[in-house]
């Protein structure tokens, strides 16, 4: 974040106050955000905003939907149409938004607990339908907003407030889950992989179909502290030392163990008709000339339709 504030010397050139290039995309009247120091969420949000700017989609068409939790607050900071919904229900809300206005580029930006636990059913069905949207799943291995409880992605052995002796549940391998359900773009990075994440998010935003990007992100305040993993910086060092880029990896092999290696990269990229493609094609065939394609949203005040 550059904050170069210069005072012009008398008679010298007038230098305008320098602004962060993301300011136009942030609700600056809501900054500072609520996230902890060295939490990875700010990095992921920055990457998303850069990807919006680089994507081929017009700004007005970008829409963000979040659920509940630390990551769920992301929608509140981005200066595009943004919806902060109920716990786990960001995906079905986003589905309705997309179907009612298919022009929108809907991104669901939420956490592992929101998307994979309480929202797990919606995740597998959105992937199965190849619903045309992007999902950014920030995985910090725990429920952080509520103070650090274990969740469906917590590695076995990690300690959290509701797993004081270490979690003994088998965690989800999320890329394998969504891949097996029909997602047509699946990638994973850590919050250390800024350049790669941006490139991946641009690809995901430009992808037709259900694109899913998991980002492993440090939770210094609860997950790391309770497990004596050090600071956010120590976790980035761990990502640096343990991440292994393997594009096209078989998603069955990318599960994450406690303090283990993290396979990252673009795992899946395939073409398949989206929900709207199959719906229109099938109804066009079956209903014939009586078929009336969805007429689009109602005419709004400024005449856009």
């Amino acid at each position: 974040m550059s904050e170069l504030l210069t005072t012009p010397a008398p008679g010298g050139p007038v230098v305008e106050e320098e602004r962060h290039p993301h300011e136009p995309f942030l609700r600056m009247d809501r900054i500072p955000h609520i996230w902890c120091s060295t939490c990875g969420l700010g990095t992921v949000l920055n990457c998303y905003i850069t990807a919006i700017q680089r994507s081929s989609v017009p700004r007005a068409d970008h829409t963000i939907v979040s659920g509940i939790g630390c990551t769920g607050r992301a929608a509140g900071y981005v200066k595009i149409d943004s919806f902060h919904t109920t716990h786990g229900r960001a995906l079905p809300f986003a589905t309705g938004l997309k179907l009612a206005n298919p022009r929108l580029k809907v991104t669901v930006f939420s956490g592992d607990g929101d998307l994979v636990a309480i929202g797990g059913n919606h995740l597998i069905h959105a992937a199965r339908r190849n619903m045309d949207m992007t999902v950014i799943c920030v995985n910090n291995f725990n429920y952080a907003m509520t103070g650090g409880q274990f969740g469906p992605t917590t590695p076995e052995g990690a300690k959290l407030t509701t797993a004081p002796y270490g979690s003994y549940e088998h965690p989800f391998n999320i890329p394998f889950l969504v891949d097996s359900c029909g997602a047509t773009y699946v990638a994973r990075w850590t919050s250390l992989h800024v350049r790669e994440m941006i490139e991946t998010l641009v690809e995901a935003l430009n992808h037709r179909g259900f694109s899913f990007v998991e980002v492993i992100s440090p939770c210094p305040t609860v997950y790391a502290r309770r497990n004596r993993l050090g600071t956010g910086l120590d976790l980035l060092k761990y990502y640096h030392d343990s991440a292994e880029v393997r594009h096209g990896a078989d998603t069955r092999d990318v599960d994450i163990s406690f303090k283990g290696r993290i396979i990252v990269g673009r795992f899946v990229q395939r073409c398949k008709p989206t929900y709207l493609d199959t719906m229109d094609a099938a109804l066009g065939r079956s209903v014939g000339k009586e078929f009336v394609c969805y007429e689009g949203p109602m005419q709004a005040s400024d005449g856009r339709s």
Binding site: P92, F93, T95, G96, L97, L99, A100, G296, P297, A300
Partner: peptide, 10 residues
């Protein structure tokens, strides 16, 4: 949830 999204979609 979907009909709420649909309503905001217009």
């Amino acid at each position: 949830a979907a009909i709420l999204g649909g309503a905001w979609g217009g």
